[in-house]
Design a protein around this nucleic acid. Structure first.
Length: 449
RNA sequence: GGCCUCUUCGUCUAGUGGCUAGGACACCAGGUUCUCAUCCUGGAAACAGGGGUUCAAUUCCCCUAGAGGCUACCA
């Protein structure tokens, strides 16, 4: 095997949801591996048998897949350095423990079965690729530390060290919360005679109050963002820029561009606040890039959830395209398009039809005239542009005011105070439905405000 | 408490021993507009504080403060 081969890994523990911070660490590892032509590995750290659950492992892999990350080895696809679950690697840990015990580098504690590593009372110094030289004095955390609960029950520290070596991990890129742990890991490597990988500790993701992003203070569940209608490319792009900068003013990068540009040199040292507002801005951007086909495919689950029947795909593609510029998420997109539903109830208040400079009487007259005028138009002029041209010159001829005319028309079609414009809406709805809704509005206002 | 690490607009960040300290998001104002969104134009907004070093520090050094992390037979 080539010693120079770069191999990175993400080693999540399946004890809960897919944390955003884990996702970002995974992303940086993947980008670094791709950039350098190395391999990216997924390893499940389930040494905590109490808390680890198989379904959590599935959730983690789902999250990574949703983001679009690809890995070369992992529990789902195997690889030459398997197995990829710590629960299946017990023999290796036991071997390491026996060796440490035999050479008296470790010893069992007086009472229980636990095993501690002997730690010499001297500073551990290592070079961090992001932070430079870091010095840790083991005495500050009490020197000798537990590396296993029993011969068959290793603790995280022992397991990572054994696995990283066995799986030939060249670069350990992980959260800053492991900075001090790294000293322990180095001590373990020395005792076991294992090579030391290069370390790079990423700044932590923080919540609004600058604390480590945690479940209590914010939405840290990656898949919750998926379920709220965020696009993976937006999340990926945003996450990549949290704590890393590409040394340019550009901000929008595809996954492939990131894989080309990423380097550890651009990684920040200070923690970064996860700001949903900016994520939302990225999401808007990517939402606007979608073709109408993609729009429908991505919005389909939400449309279905809302109970719309997508029999006429072209109709819904047009409807979504109309709403595309104003929605921030797929969820908003679907709700924004609700009035296009063929069984739209039109349950708005009649007073909404009246423009602020107008009154009921005038509004009623205009709606009546609008109906007659549109009824005369042929199907061939039923496009946004021609509707606009004909209607605007009609408004002109009749000496009407735009607001007095366009506002009631738009409300008749959408039932909303805020919505897309009347021309584009009418074009999508089609002549029959447009007239039907105008008629409904006419009756509504006749019945009184 | 101890140890480790960090500190540029509200947020993500660029940047340099001498610059009007740049960009993006958010915000504010104006324009476009039937509404909202978009779009265009403009605006406000930062080098944590104190000492040094230096002709000159946001930039180099020290101290302080603040923040975060670790201090588990969790990972």
């Amino acid at each position: 095997m080539d010693d120079k081969m770069i191999r990175t890994r993400i080693a999540p523990s399946p004890t809960g949801l897919m944390h955003i911070g884990t996702a970002r660490t995974a992303l940086f590892n993947e980008l670094f591996a791709r950039k350098t032509g190395g391999k990216f590995i997924v390893r499940i750290e389930d040494t905590d048998r109490e808390r680890s659950k198989k379904e959590y492992e599935q959730i983690i892999l789902d999250g990574l897949r949703w983001l679009g990350l690809t890995w070369d080895e992992g529990p789902d696809i195997g690889g030459d350095f398997g197995p990829y679950r710590q629960s299946e690697r017990g023999a290796m840990y036991r071997g390491a423990l026996e060796k440490l015990l035999a050479q008296d580098s470790a010893y069992p504690v007086e009472d229980g079965e636990a095993i501690r590593l002997r730690v010499p009372p001297e500073d551990v110094v290592f070079n961090d690729l992001i932070r430079g030289e870091v010095t840790v004095n083991p005495e500050t955390w009490g020197g000798d530390f537990v590396i296993a609960r029993s011969l068959d029950d290793p603790v995280f520290h022992l397991a990572v060290v054994v696995d990283d070596a066995a799986q030939a991990i060249s670069h350990v890129i992980r959260g800053e919360d492991h900075l001090t742990n790294t000293a322990r890991h180095i001590l373990l490597q020395r005792a076991l005679g294992l090579p030391m990988p290069q370390y790079a500790h990423l700044p932590l993701l923080l919540d609004k109050s600058r604390r480590k992003l945690s479940k209590r203070t914010g939405e840290v569940n990656l898949l919750a963002y998926r379920d709220r209608g965020f696009l993976p490319e937006a999340m990926l792009n945003y996450l990549a820029l949290l704590g890393w900068n590409p040394k340019s003013d550009e901000e929008f990068f595809s996954h492939d561009q990131l894989r080309e540009k990423f380097e550890l040199a651009g990684v920040q040292k200070g923690g970064a606040i996860f700001d949903e507002t900016k994520l939302g801005a990225f999401n808007k951007h990517y939402l606007r890039q979608l073709t109408r086909e993609e729009l429908l495919e991505k919005a389909r689950p939400w449309l279905k959830k809302a109970g719309y029947i997508i029999d006429d795909e072209r109709y819904w593609r047009d409807a979504l395209a109309v709403e595309q510029a104003r929605a921030a998420t797929l969820e908003e997109l679907a709700s924004g398009v609700s009035f296009f539903s063929p069984d739209w109830p039109g349950d708005y208040s009649p007073s909404l039809l009246v423009w602020r400079d107008s009154n009921e009487k005038e509004t009623k007259e205009i709606i009546g005239q609008l109906k007659d005028f549109l009824d005369e138009l042929g199907d061939n002029v039923w496009t946004e542009q021609t509707l606009k041209d004909t209607l605007m010159s009609w408004v002109e001829e009749k000496g009407l005011k735009r607001g007095n005319t366009l506002w009631p028309l738009r409300v008749a079609l959408t039932g909303r105070e805020n919505s897309p414009g009347p021309f584009e809406t009418a074009a999508v709805l089609g002549k029959a439905r447009t007239l039907e809704r105008l008629d409904g509005a006419f009756k509504k206002i006749t019945r009184g405000v």
